[in-house]
C-alpha cells in the first residue's frame, strides 16, 4: 500500500517530465513569466503582471499555472507520507522518531497495531530501532505518526541510507522500475521512505552495491539516460 502511494506520485512526476520545454532553473526574486493570463502556483507569487519565484528550483509552466519544483532542501512532512525513521527517545506515552526535516515526529502508543505494556514500551521498539511509519497529522511544530496500515512496522536489521528527499522519485523510477532493478541485481530488500531515508537489508556485498547505486542516482538525478547509466553500473546484460 505504502509503495503504491509513492508509485502514484512518481507517475505524476514522470508524466510532468514530458513537457520539458518550459522548464528552467530560477532563483528567488526572479520573474518567471509576465502577462496577466498566468496564475501563481507553488512557491511563486504575483506582483503586477509578473509571476515571481519564491525559491530556488525548476520553474514549470502548465497551461496557465506557474509553479516551482524544488531541487534541494530538507524534507517537508505532509500528511499521508510514508517515512522511515529511527527511534530517538521513548516517553511514557510513545516514541520520538527522527525522520529528518524540521521537526521530530511522535508515534503514540495507541497508534501501534498491537498491544504494548505501558511499563515496557521498549519491548516493541527501543532507541535506535528503525520504523516504517505513515504521517498521520502535521500540526504547527509537530508531526504525528501511525503504524496502523499495511506494510508499516518495525524494520529489523539492515541499514539506513540518507538521500535528499527531492530525489526519492528518481530512486523508485517509473512504476518502481528503478528500485526493482536494484533489488534484483543486488539481492537486497529495500524500503524507500518519502523523507529520503532508505532502508536496505541483504548480504554485505549487496548492501554495499545498493548503497553505491542509490548514491549514484542521487548525484545524477537530473541527467538524461539515467536508467541506462544505472543498468551499466549494475552490469545488466541486454
Amino acid at each position: 500500500m505504502a509503495e503504491t502511494k509513492i508509485k502514484q506520485e512518481v507517475e505524476e512526476i514522470e508524466e510532468e517530465t514530458y513537457e520539458k520545454s518550459e522548464r528552467k532553473l530560477v532563483i528567488p526574486g526572479e520573474t518567471i513569466v509576465s502577462g496577466d493570463d498566468y496564475l501563481p502556483g507553488d512557491f511563486t507569487r504575483k506582483e503586477g503582471d509578473n509571476i515571481i519565484a519564491n525559491r530556488y528550483g525548476l520553474s514549470d509552466v502548465r497551461g496557465r499555472v506557474v509553479k516551482i519544483i524544488p531541487v534541494s532542501g530538507v524534507f517537508e512532512p505532509r500528511r499521508g507520507n510514508t517515512v522511515i525513521g529511527r527511534v530517538e527517545d521513548i516517553t511514557f506515552s510513545g516514541w520520538i522518531v527522527d525522520i529528518g526535516g524540521p521537526y521530530g515526529a511522535f508515534l503514540p502508543l495507541a497508534e501501534c497495531p498491537r498491544f504494548i505494556n505501558r511499563n515496557n514500551i521498549d519491548e516493541f521498539a527501543g532507541i535506535g530501532d528503525v520504523l516504517n511509519a505513515k504521517i498521520w497529522s502535521v500540526k504547527k511544530g509537530s508531526v504525528d505518526l501511525t503504524l496502523k496500515s499495511r506494510g508499516l512496522g518495525k524494520l529489523e536489521g539492515g541499514m539506513i541510507i540518507k538521500i535528499n528527499s527531492n530525489k526519492v522519485p528518481r530512486v523508485i523510477g517509473k512504476e518502481g522500475s528503478m528500485i526493482n532493478l536494484i533489488k534484483d541485481k543486488t539481492g537486497t530488500e529495500i524500503t524507500v521512505g518519502q523523507n529520503g531515508f532508505i532502508w536496505v537489508r541483504g548480504e554485505l556485498e549487496g548492501e554495499k552495491k545498493a548503497e553505491e547505486t542509490i548514491k549514484l542516482i542521487e548525484r545524477e538525478a537530473s541527467s538524461d539516460g539515467l536508467t541506462e547509466k544505472i543498468e551499466n553500473f549494475l552490469g545488466v546484460k541486454k
Binding site: 528567488p28 519564491n54 525559491r55 524544488p70 534541494s72
Partner: peptide
Amino acid sequence: LAHAGIVMREM
C-alpha cells in the same frame, strides 16, 4: 540559503 531551498522573497 537559496541553494538550500529556503523560501525567500528576493535574493
